[in-house]
């Protein structure tokens, strides 16, 4: 079992870049530990800014730094970053078009038993609704690495959500099929299309394998790029499929499922079922306990497909 969380992969790439690029700046809001940025802060103290527990300031200061040529990476719990500082993300980052990468750590229900104040089940909807904001939910540490390397090459705003705990690898160190803003096809099949992002890619992959064994050829898309959504891949695999199922660690409103349904409805009408968290505070438990309870696991996905077909 992999022991490196995706947030650690972000820090590793930024440290590699900072070794030769003094414009990489990391900002934290008393979150350097939870963001796995302690090593960056101690290795590159001149390129690290601590703002204290002040997420609005975190984002605005990042925008000011970016305006002056810095590549600002603001890392803070996704729940606070995406809602407490929402207006700063909208105005100072997206509207002013500053090179700020917003790193939402411990996203979704990562904080488990800490409750709804610490869950971010609205961030995809909120961030996607901002013009000029991109939204990424990488699935494992290898893809996270490739994503951050790609983001270092551009100067546009983006929001990246990662979870708190290590997740099992989807890819391997020497095999990460990654094209920026294109979904990764994990499996191809003509009858069913599964579209997942973030930590839900793992159970979607397992479900896809099981469905194929059961005689239902299934395509599985790792849609780490929620915005800009890879519409072409959705249309390519939804066309002719009997059923599309989306899986996300998010509210049922305005997330991956809503966006996929929009595309499928407009381009290739097919039945779409959205598996997501409920529109309610989630039950108390670890991430896996919560996922299992709501059927956000391989078994739940398979059952949904079998009932839906």
């Amino acid at each position: 079992m992999n022991k490196i969380p995706n947030r650690q992969a972000i820090c590793d790439v930024l440290m590699e870049q900072a070794a030769n690029d003094r414009n990489v700046v990391v900002l934290c809001s008393d979150s350097r530990g939870s963001a796995s940025m302690t090593a960056f802060a101690s290795t590159y103290p001149e390129q690290f800014v601590e703002v204290g527990i002040a997420e609005q300031n975190l984002v605005s200061i990042s925008a000011g730094l970016a305006k002056c040529g810095k590549k600002a990476y603001a890392a803070s719990p996704a729940c606070f970053l995406s809602t407490r500082s929402y207006e700063q993300c909208k105005v100072d980052v997206a509207y002013s078009n500053t090179n700020v990468k917003l790193i939402g750590i411990s996203g979704g229900i990562s904080y488990g038993a800490l409750g709804m104040s610490h869950h971010s089940a609205q961030d995809i909807a909120a961030m996607s609704a901002i013009p000029n904001m991109r939204v990424y939910l990488p699935s494992d540490r290898h893809q996270t690495r490739e994503l951050v390397k790609a983001l270092l090459q551009d100067e546009k705003p983006a929001y990246i959500r990662v979870g708190r705990n290590p997740v099992e690898d989807i890819y391997s160190e020497d095999s990460v099929p990654f094209v920026m803003d294109q979904a990764t096809v994990l499996q191809e099949g003509s009858e069913v299309l599964l579209v997942a992002c973030g930590e839900m890619v793992r159970p979607a992959k397992a479900a896809g394998e099981k469905l194929a064994q059961l005689g239902h050829p299934t395509t599985v898309l790792d849609m780490y790029c929620v915005k800009p959504l890879d519409k072409a891949s959705i249309v390519k695999y939804a066309q002719g499929a009997k059923l599309v199922v989306t899986i996300e660690e998010h509210s049922p409103f305005g997330g991956l499922g809503s966006m996929v349904a929009q595309v499928v409805g407009a381009e290739c009408p097919t039945r779409v079922i959205n598996l997501a968290l409920p529109d309610a505070p989630v039950i108390t438990g670890t991430s896996q306990e919560v996922f299992d309870y709501y059927g956000l696991n391989a078994e739940g996905i398979v059952n949904t497909v079998m009932k839906g077909l």
Partner: peptide
Amino acid sequence: IEMNSGSLGHGLPVCIGMALAARMD
């Protein structure tokens, strides 16, 4: 015009980022 504004309470924190960048460089 360097930055978009309109929503109040943004200018000072943005300027702090600019001032930090000027100091770094």
